[in-house]
């Protein structure tokens, strides 16, 4: 029982980082109806960024979290302005090919630069844990989860209480209305994509402390983010976090009680169950 609880807590903590990654996907889709098929690839770029900054400059991931997220915001903003903007509103298969193409370029670029080997970040506290009663919780996971929660909360407050955030919600709510009142939709879309990638930058940086960076993770993370967003409900911010936690726990339990390589089987089983019973996702409003 104590062990199961331990596994669940670790799953929740990892799940919050997954949730932050999925939040980026959800925000981009919810506002622009564009699915970022290169999501996991960007996550892995952030993991490598954290790895390099640690190896070369000795900077710990929690210190570079915000700078990396800010850099990813800029990349996302520019990417939307240049490459993706012409594809907004076009047929889904055209967007799909564009972003899958981008994903392929990124993965192969990473393979070229870093090779296929996994790159761990060995923090001084990588193997420390907090003991609470019979629970032993990894320090890195606690920090990563707190970081993910803080970034997600900041994003939530931004959308709720700033005028730019409200304007982005207005675009998602009624695009014609946004043009009617003279909102600069292209600019707001670029900010949205930037915010989506900032989530990814933060999530990847945090992920680098609990998983080893490797190009092979990219595709798995894209699928994972997708699964989480569909389970939580497309376009729902809270749903992305809830979905992330659910997947984190299911992966942790499956990995512990069955086999780590079976993790994704359970995630997808969960996905299928949700799709059958509640196609709009747990917290999704409508399809």
């Amino acid at each position: 029982m104590a062990i199961t609880l331990n596994v669940i807590v670790q799953g929740v903590l990892t799940g919050l980082v997954y949730g932050l990654m999925a939040l980026g996907l959800s925000v981009i889709f919810g506002v622009m109806r564009v699915v970022n098929f290169a999501h996991g690839e960007f996550t892995v770029i952030a993991m490598y960024a954290a790895f390099i900054l640690f190896e070369m400059l000795g900077l710990q991931p929690l210190i570079v979290l915000l700078p990396i997220a800010a850099a990813f915001f800029v990349v996302g903003y520019l990417l939307q302005r240049s490459l993706i903007s012409p594809f907004v509103g076009r047929a889904e298969h055209e967007q799909f090919i564009l972003l899958v193409g981008l994903a392929t370029v990124i993965v192969n670029g990473l393979l070229l630069v870093f090779g296929p080997d996994a790159r761990p970040i060995n923090l001084p506290y990588s193997f420390d844990s907090y003991a609470i009663g019979s629970l032993f919780i990894d320090k890195v996971r606690v920090y990563a989860a707190l970081g993910a929660f803080a970034v997600a909360a900041a994003l939530f407050l931004f959308f709720r209480y700033t005028r730019t955030g409200t304007a982005i919600r207005a675009c998602a709510d009624n695009l014609t209305g946004a043009a009617v009142v003279g909102l600069d939709v292209k600019q707001l879309y670029a900010v949205t994509f930037g915010l989506g990638l900032a989530c990814v930058g933060a999530a990847g940086t945090l992920m680098a402390t609990i998983a080893d960076a490797s190009p092979s993770l990219a595709q798995a993370y894209t699928l994972l983010a997708f699964t989480i967003v569909i389970i939580g409900g497309l376009g729902s911010m809270v749903g992305a976090l809830v979905g992330g936690v659910l997947i984190g726990v299911s992966e942790a339990l499956a990995g512990f009680y069955i086999q780590p390589s079976m993790k994704s089987m359970f995630s997808f089983a969960l996905l299928i169950i949700v799709l059958v019973l509640r196609p709009q996702g747990l917290l999704g409003r409508r399809l």
């Binding site: 005028r163 409200t166 304007a167 919600r169 207005a170 709510d173 009624n174 014609t176 209305g177 946004a178 009617v180 009142v181 003279g182 909102l183």
Partner: peptide
Amino acid sequence: NLGIGQVAEGRQIFPSLSVSENLDMGAM
């Protein structure tokens, strides 16, 4: 921004935003 406003067909308000937020969006 030149001063040409529009009260559009079908009203085109933002249904899930509050009345106050809708007004704010007109002043962006």
